[in-house]
Design a binder for these strands. Structure first.
Length: 222
DNA sequence: TAGGCCATCTGGTCCT
DNA sequence: AGGACCAGATGGCCTA
């Protein structure tokens, strides 16, 4: 888990722009040796040069330590932001799980299952509305023309739901490949009570076959 | 024990 | 310049 914290290697190269190094140079604390106070007038030019070399060496070590600290704190901050970002993403996924009709208490949908089910659920709801509109339009025609016989009445609940799936699958509106498979072992069983609770009113109001929505939500990516 | 899922770290790139 | 976003890497946990 905390691999990077424990394995942090200060010698490893991190790509920082030159400007950051310039920033760093501006952050250098003034060296006590740079004031000239330690340079005695009695020192020879040779001794002066050696002293300068020593100072530069000491400064370089100190600068590297400061640079290391700056890099480390930036990394820690970035890690923290990234962690927060992922937590927010997971929170949103949890909210989505709560909204989806298939949400058994004992099992938790994985991330990918959540997204796929949400996709299918939206599609199924759209189809429900479309069918509801169709049914409504036909009813109005029958009211205007009492003897009118609907040429293609929607199938009654329990009728050939498979044909509905084959003619109105999400693949018609999406480039993704779909199948009506329910064989994914990682998918939790659909809770029908929970599922129909969300769409019950729609079904009763518009005579939408319930098994249509039920099977529609089972449609999965492959 | 292999495989799936997940959290976290990390460095690169994009955006504001 | 700093933050957001992304994808790859890694290791832990769980289950069949």
């Amino acid at each position: 888990m905390d691999r990077a914290c424990t394995d942090y290697d200060p010698s490893s190269r991190m790509s920082f722009s030159p400007s950051e190094d310039e920033d760093y140079s501006s952050l250098q604390s003034p060296s006590p040796y740079s004031t000239g106070a330690l340079t005695s007038p009695a020192q020879t030019p040779e001794k002066c040069g050696e002293e300068k070399k020593k100072r530069r060496g000491r400064n370089r070590v100190k600068n590297e330590a400061v640079l290391h600290t700056i890099k480390k704190t930036r990394r820690v901050k970035a890690n923290d932001r990234e962690r927060n970002r992922m937590h927010n993403l997971n929170s949103a996924l949890d909210e989505l799980r709560g909204i989806l009709p298939c949400f058994p208490d004992d099992t938790k949908l994985t991330k990918i299952e959540t997204l796929r089910l949400a996709h299918n659920y939206i599609w199924a709801l759209s189809e429900t509305l479309r069918l509801a509109d169709q049914t409504k339009a036909k009813t109005q025609v029958e009211l205007v023309q009492p003897g009118y016989m609907s040429p293609a009445a929607p199938p009654s609940p329990g009728s050939d739901a498979g044909s509905w799936m084959s003619t109105a699958s999400p693949s018609s509106s999406s480039s993704s490949s779909f199948s009506a498979s329910t064989s994914n072992p990682s998918s939790p069983a659909m809770s029908e009570d929970c599922y129909y609770g969300h769409t019950e009113s729609l079904f009763s109001l518009h005579s939408i076959p319930q098994n249509f929505m039920h099977s529609a939500c089972f449609v999965q990516y492959q």
